[in-house]
Write a protein that binds this DNA or RNA. Structure first.
Length: 624
RNA sequence: CGGGGUGUGGCGCAGCUUGGUCAGCGCGCAUGCUUUGGGAGCAUGAGGUCGGCGGUUCAAAUCCGCCCACCCCGACCA
């Protein structure tokens, strides 16, 4: 089995082997729960999973509140139940899947030199004050008081706690690098939980934190995690891609997100197939090649009675929306700022936050318009707008032939040219790329696709170590802050993502690596003595091999058993039915392909062993 | 937080407009018999004070008010 890692400062902690597998080869034997050999005195070594005695409440109908496949199927198939909005119970099969995913994560984390710890969910306010995030995190952090009235937060993430742990116990360069991780419950009081496990309030997360002497070390730690993440998602059966990402509340400079492409994903990423540039749409750049040009005509006023929206005005004037200047009024730290973007684009507020250097801003609301009556909602334009700072999207640099509000009721201006008629205080990248926009690196057209963020890695640098005084002594006795990184995987979200990528209309199709069982034995007409005995024998034999097997020993009709088996999605199915009566053969079905074969008992085992063997090879190579 | 919607046995729903044998249907559950290769049939049965509180009325699942929960869209979050 895999080493659980050593104490701080041990070989396991120091033995960095970027990109490789530090430590010993991982034990893939008994992937379905089985120890191999040496089970003397015990006839059964696999877990006993008789369906009649296992808590798998399947539903014939979809629950009314489930919209997406993963949510619907996980509930219908008896893996999951909701107890409150965004809060779920994992039933035995769901728990199995979580454990299997967790196991893959542990193997890869341990192999990459990280050590597992367990950190508290409930964390004292004081730590969060140190990092400044008690104020900054906002209502998303669940807060509570103990009986003495002391403030605590339920950890939405664990940088503070881990930094506190390390600063108090690590003080020498000899103990670095150090990488600690946990798999634990996180709580985030999401504004709007939805999509089952994809956006839950309480969820399981693997989070790791690395501590290094310098930036170079941090980069190596980052690289090791990045590569481990790729292996983890691949082994869980996901297609994925890593993209450049924004850092948000966690902070730091460099970050990548691991995205699992899926229609239902809430994130969007821009991809270039020519040069492999890929980034979250929040920060993906694109080249401005569509900048409209003018013909040197003089600016002109036109009457646009009652027309406030881009659609209304552009339709009335017969101009393309991209020639309209959308002038958005923002209140930035209490001051009005005009943000100019082409009429056919939206402002990207993540980019805007970067440019403004603050996230204290919002689009004008009703009362803001009232308080600033000199800005006429629907007719604001950059020409003659002296009272506000004006920042414009890059695509408006040198643009001409534009139309915009005249800062006068029911009037717009046409033939407007940037540079001649108005001049923004600055230009910046303020809009999101769309499919077809040119790649910022190579200029080829990109595409935008939806994905589920299943993991994110950050180079934190000194953000927390300086704020929280997490220092060490180097060889010369100098006191230096540690360079940190942090690395998260949404374990339960990953489970949902796997289902999103692996299901059909009838149910889940688990990849072998994370399936709650390897084989599902269905004995049809279980009452028939011969079939029952055959099923029991097969079951026992599988258990002795250490396989995880689910035996459908219920006295249900064939249709019910098949339908439930499709729903549960266990990769292989052995059916004992008519074929068995006729010539003693069993039918092996593969859930993913639907392939069926009537086999003798010996051949059935041979085929299953082959499947396990080829899977094991894939796993060793990191292809699975 | 804004907008919309829903809350009726374990699950999915009807009933509400036009208060009064409306507490009902399907699935599930229990018992018995017959069934068993794609969600079986017959029979019998258990189970809901209709989200909560208050009001109107002779009478409220149904009308009114407040509250709560859940869902969707948006805002938010990363």
């Amino acid at each position: 089995m895999v080493s659980q890692g050593g104490a701080p400062g041990s070989t396991a902690a120091r033995g960095r082997q970027v990109g490789g597998r530090a430590g010993q080869g991982r034990g893939y034997a008994g992937r379905w729960g089985g120890r191999k050999g040496n089970g003397k005195g015990r006839t059964r070594r696999g877990r006993d999973m008789r369906q009649s005695r296992t808590f798998i409440p399947t539903l014939r109908e979809s629950p009314a509140d489930a919209e997406i496949a993963s949510h619907r199927l996980l509930v219908r198939a008896g893996y999951l139940r909701k107890v409150a909005s965004g809060i779920y119970e994992f039933l035995p099969l769901g728990t199995r899947v979580v454990q299997r995913i967790s196991r893959i994560i542990r193997e890869e984390m341990n192999a990459a030199g990280a050590q597992e710890v367990m950190l508290p969910i409930m964390q004292p306010r004081e730590l969060w004050e140190e990092s400044g995030r008690w104020a900054k995190y906002g209502p998303e952090m669940m807060r509570l008081k103990d009986r003495a009235g002391r403030d605590f937060g339920l950890g939405p993430t664990h940088e503070e706690v881990i930094t506190d742990l390390v600063r108090n116990n690590v003080s020498s360069y000899r103990d670095l690098p150090l990488n600690l991780y946990q798999i634990g419950t996180k709580f985030r009081d999401e504004v709007r939980p939805r999509f089952g496990l994809l956006r839950a309030r309480e969820f399981l997360m693997k989070d790791a934190y690395s501590f290094d002497r310098d930036e170079e070390g941090m980069r190596l730690s980052y690289k090791a995690m990045y590569e481990a993440y790729g292996r983890i998602f691949t082994r869980c059966g996901c297609t994925w891609r890593a993209v450049e990402a924004a850092t948000g509340l966690i902070g730091g400079d460099i970050s990548h997100e691991f995205m699992v492409p899926a229609e239902v994903g809430e994130d969007h990423i821009a991809l270039c197939d020519s040069c492999s540039y890929s980034a979250n749409l929040e920060l993906a750049g694109y080249r401005r090649t569509e900048t409209p040009r003018g013909e040197g005509k003089a600016m002109e006023r036109v009457s646009t009675p009652g027309m406030r929206t881009i659609e209304e005005v552009s339709g009335y004037l017969g101009m393309e929306p991209r020639r309209m200047v959308k002038c958005l009024m923002y209140l930035v730290e209490g001051k009005p700022v005009a943000v100019l973007v082409p009429g056919d684009r939206e402002a990207n507020e993540v980019k805007l936050a970067r440019v403004l250097g603050t996230d204290e801003f919002r689009l004008f609301n009703e009362s803001d318009w009232k308080e600033h009556p000199d800005y006429l909602q629907g007719f604001v334009g950059p020409v003659g707008l002296d009272s506000a700072e004006i920042i414009a999207d890059e695509s408006l640099r040198g643009a001409g032939g534009l139309a915009c509000g005249a800062n006068e009721r029911d009037v717009h201006l046409v033939h407007v040219e940037e540079g001649r008629d108005f001049r923004p205080h600055s230009f910046a990248d303020l809009t999101s790329a769309r499919t077809g926009d040119p790649c910022p690196r190579c200029g080829e057209p990109m595409r935008v696709e939806a994905g589920i963020e299943v993991g994110q890695v950050f180079q934190l640098g000194l953000k927390y170590s300086e704020a929280m005084r997490c220092y060490y002594h180097d060889e010369n006795g100098e006191v230096r802050p540690m360079y940190m990184g942090c690395y998260g995987i949404g374990v339960t979200r990953l489970m949902a993502a796997v289902v999103e990528q692996h299901h059909d209309e009838r149910g889940i199709i688990w990849p072998l690596s994370v399936a709650p069982a390897f084989l599902h034995i269905l004995a049809l007409d279980y009452q028939r003595e011969g079939r029952r005995k055959a099923a029991e024998d097969l079951y026992r034999e599988c258990l002795e091999k250490g396989w995880e097997v689910l035996l459908d020993d219920r006295e249900e009709s064939a249709g019910v058993k098949f339908a439930d088996a499709d729903l549960l999605g266990i990769p292989f199915r052995a059916v004992i039915g008519r074929g068995y009566d006729e010539d003693g053969t069993l039918e092996l079905q593969e859930r993913a392909t639907g392939q069926r074969a009537r086999l003798t008992r010996e051949n059935l085992f041979r085929r299953l062993e082959e499947a396990r063997e080829s899977f094991r090879d894939l796993a060793e190579r990191g292809d699975m």
